[in-house]
Simulated assay, not measured.
Amino acid sequence: MTSGAPQTSRVTDKTFAILGGFVRGWSADKIGPSGLIARANAAGRRPPLVWVLNDTKEFGAFADALGPDQPLIAMRSLNTVIAPHRLTRADVHSVAERYAQELGAILGKRPFFLGGNCQGAAIAAALARRLLLAGADLRGFAGMEWPDLPPLPVPVTLLFGADSPGHNPFLSGRDPVPVWERIYPSHEVAILPGSHGTYFDPERVADLVRVLRAMIATPRPARPVPDAPALPVLGLPARCRAGERLAGALSAPGGAGKDEIVVLWDPETPAPAHREPARPYRLPGGAELLRLSAPDRPGSWFVQTFRCRAGAGPLAWAEESGRHRRIEVTAA
């Protein structure tokens, strides 16, 4: 269940007209009713790769490097359409919803892979949720240079540049692996030569394609959407101070067993997200509390909790991926 004031998306019909204009410039078949989706290498027999691109110039180089045996279905992110400092979570989800409406009919029940680069990865992750809940056969996800992706119940490949300190968490002293081990059933990390924005350049795109082709070639069985009982965390405040230690009560004491609760704080506007795994703390009498820390940055944050298990990923993803609480974080 969601709580807190809803966000208002800035995405309008004019926004989609601009996105359609970008796609019309790509040398490819246009599919779907609104001209927002392009397809290349349609005769290829490999499972389609669905990708949200971040720049107009990327499509041609990507399609050519993938080769005629690899179908590519591509859309455009909101990069240059909405200024980065104004982009909100609601904007991302509005675009994902529109793409999902059209892709459902295009993909049908075929196995496919999905991904995106930079801001496109955030849209692709929101798109993955909608397609999975609609019964689509998503076999794997790839996110490039966007380390704060949400939990997903499919294998995930994370790609970063060797010379990209602003986007590669390993170059900024962060260690996201403990969280990744819990929020995905499996994950791989690939470090690409180069810096942000260069991976589709002629001298770089082969490195990207090599990783993606290996991902698609790896046998992956269809996975049911995880629907174990969710464990909502009750009693979280609507407002707190930056860095404040908080505690919430599990709705079903003892229900977590050996599982962990991963807490995700996502900012309303672009900024590094805050993630932390936590084990419930049992009190005398059997009640269980979850201790968590508010982000250090003031602002509006959307908090989600996921019941996870290392090596298995999110266990109650079907319910928990659609539930959040908005918390206003004030200066300490």
Rank of each mutant, 00 (worst) to 15 (best):
residue 176 P to F: 11
residue 119 Q to R: 13
residue 81 V to H: 07
residue 105 A to K: 12
residue 110 R to E: 14
residue 8 T to V: 12
residue 131 L to S: 01
residue 35 G to K: 05
residue 176 P to D: 06
residue 141 F to M: 00
residue 128 A to P: 02
residue 70 Q to E: 06
residue 36 L to H: 12
residue 142 A to N: 11
residue 122 A to H: 05
residue 188 E to V: 09
residue 311 G to E: 08
residue 39 R to P: 00
residue 258 K to H: 12
residue 15 T to G: 08
residue 289 L to K: 10
residue 49 L to V: 00
residue 91 D to P: 05
residue 275 R to P: 07
residue 59 F to G: 02
residue 187 H to F: 15
residue 260 E to N: 09
residue 227 D to I: 15
residue 162 A to M: 09
residue 28 A to S: 07
residue 284 P to V: 03
residue 47 P to Y: 03
residue 324 H to Y: 12
residue 18 I to N: 13
residue 271 A to L: 13
residue 155 P to T: 05
residue 224 P to M: 13
residue 119 Q to E: 03
residue 327 I to Q: 03
residue 230 A to V: 02
residue 227 D to G: 10
residue 50 V to S: 09
residue 209 V to D: 04
residue 78 L to T: 02
residue 127 L to R: 06
residue 57 K to G: 10
residue 2 T to M: 09
residue 146 W to Y: 12
residue 74 A to D: 00
residue 114 L to E: 07
residue 323 R to I: 15
residue 216 I to Q: 08
residue 123 I to P: 00
residue 181 E to F: 13
residue 289 L to A: 08
residue 213 R to D: 03
residue 143 G to D: 00
residue 57 K to R: 15
residue 124 A to F: 13
residue 56 T to M: 12
residue 200 F to I: 09
residue 252 A to T: 14
residue 1 M to W: 09
residue 107 L to G: 00
residue 182 R to W: 08
residue 90 A to L: 01
residue 42 A to S: 11
residue 300 S to F: 10
residue 274 H to L: 14
residue 271 A to C: 12
residue 87 L to S: 05
residue 226 P to S: 02
residue 70 Q to A: 00
residue 215 M to A: 10
residue 138 L to P: 09
residue 233 V to W: 04
residue 4 G to T: 08
residue 296 D to W: 11
residue 40 A to E: 03
residue 166 G to P: 06
residue 41 N to E: 05
residue 83 A to K: 06
residue 107 L to Y: 01
residue 48 P to E: 03
residue 60 G to R: 01
residue 171 L to S: 07
residue 28 A to T: 08
residue 314 P to H: 01
residue 72 L to C: 02
residue 216 I to F: 10
residue 309 R to L: 12
residue 152 L to A: 05
residue 49 L to E: 02
residue 121 A to M: 01
residue 38 A to L: 11
residue 140 G to A: 06
residue 88 T to S: 06
residue 150 P to L: 04
residue 158 L to F: 08
residue 46 R to C: 05
residue 164 S to D: 15
residue 279 R to C: 10
residue 167 H to C: 09
residue 56 T to F: 03
residue 132 L to N: 05
residue 68 P to S: 09
residue 177 V to D: 09
residue 96 A to G: 15
residue 122 A to D: 03
residue 102 E to I: 12
residue 224 P to F: 08
residue 165 P to D: 06
residue 134 A to K: 15
residue 223 R to Q: 15
